[in-house]
Design a protein around this nucleic acid. Structure first.
Lengths: 203, 203
DNA sequence: CGTCGATATATCGAAGTGATATAGTGGATC
DNA sequence: GATCCACTATATCACTTCGATATATCGACG
């Protein structure tokens, strides 16, 4: 799961580990803390598989000139350039490979197992890398899952064994699923009525 | 986390592993699949720590006529009683110990780390085991977390780098947090206005 | 000048996931 | 009454993720 998130970020430009964490928070819905304990191993794994490669610290970062908005890192770069060893601050910058791109689109479109909310949000946040057909397929699958889940929760709410607290939890969970459903439906409507919903690169 | 859930179920009556899974789904909010790969190790761990103990298959469940409410298992029990070996269907029934009870109330009331939604829902589903004060404390802490998270999400929504899909994900996440907040506030109101909100055993 | 908070990588043990193996049980169907 | 299927039940595997911690540099502030 993390793999897709990381590859998705690297589709746009090169990143180093720490930056991936912040981007995960700020750009993809993955709010609360994806820990370093998962990010660094994930990067190592992806590198081992040949989906990403480490960029030598002196090499310019792809797209950094155009996108360039990473405050105050070019200055320190210049000032320390020339010192051998680990490059500035020991950063390791990763770049996605062609193999990585293929892996990414393949895995983004084909959830191996049923997505939970987090996974689905991640997929949607990266949805512009999907074809319109794929998007609709994913949305419909998610919709079906949510409908099923909602019925389970409603049935659960009627369980006489529950005390007030447990029932309240169930009812709230059901409301939450209803909100999710409304969101999905809205996305589906947009997707079906508009030729290029949110524009960009979906090929 | 699973530990609390399991202990919470065992507070009411004895359970075996498979049953714990169904109960987790039906009684506590923990909807989608808590896998056996976590339940059985968790039970083993709890037994090792002395928080639960395995009940000999012949001994106690037979005597538990009073508690008995597990539909349609007494029939098969009687029919097979006397056959030696693993006991009926190899079930292992666990019972909470005194140490387990202490462990449970202690850990239920004191989240070691910041709860995510799932953990919090679990705690609320078991809230009748908490004192009113503890409940309010937990609710207020959760409320503060959600307010903070909501601001982050709203700030994130304004990030100009986001495409339409990513923005939609963020906006939906924010709405979801708003719904959570409304729930918390409702619980807080109930908790403050009613002496024994949902009644039962909160000591 | 020191030191504080943010940046940055790395590693550890513990916990959870998803898949799979194995087998008994109850009921339906032919 | 034999057979088949779905459900109940425990267990274990490899892998991923989490949370904590260690270590170091950088930039800003007084």
């Amino acid at each position: 799961m993390l793999d897709i998130a990381i590859l998705g970020l690297l589709m746009e430009r090169d990143h180093h580990g720490y930056e991936i964490r912040t981007q995960l928070r700020d750009r993809l819905g993955l709010g609360v803390n994806v820990s370093f304990g998962s990010i660094y191993p994930a990067l190592a794994r992806l590198e081992r598989e040949g989906s990403v490669e480490a960029v030598a610290p002196s090499e310019p970062r792809l797209g950094s000139l155009s996108t360039g908005s990473l405050s105050g890192e070019r200055a320190s770069l210049r000032s320390r350039r020339g010192t051998p060893g680990l490059g500035r601050r020991g950063r390791k910058v990763y770049r996605i490979t062609e193999r990585g791109r293929q892996e990414f689109v393949e895995r983004l479109a084909n959830p191996s197992t049923v997505d939970d909310g987090r996974n689905f949000s991640l997929r949607m946040a990266l949805a512009r890398h999907l074809t319109p057909n794929r998007r609709v397929t994913l949305l419909e699958r998610r919709r079906a899952d949510l409908v099923e889940r909602l019925e389970e929760l409603r049935a659960g709410t009627r369980n006489p064994q529950l005390d007030g607290y447990a029932r309240s939890v169930m009812e709230h969970a059901a409301q939450s699923v209803e909100l999710d459903l409304a969101w999905i439906d809205q996305l589906l409507t947009t997707e079906r009525s508009t030729p290029q919903p949110f524009a960009r690169d979906a090929k």
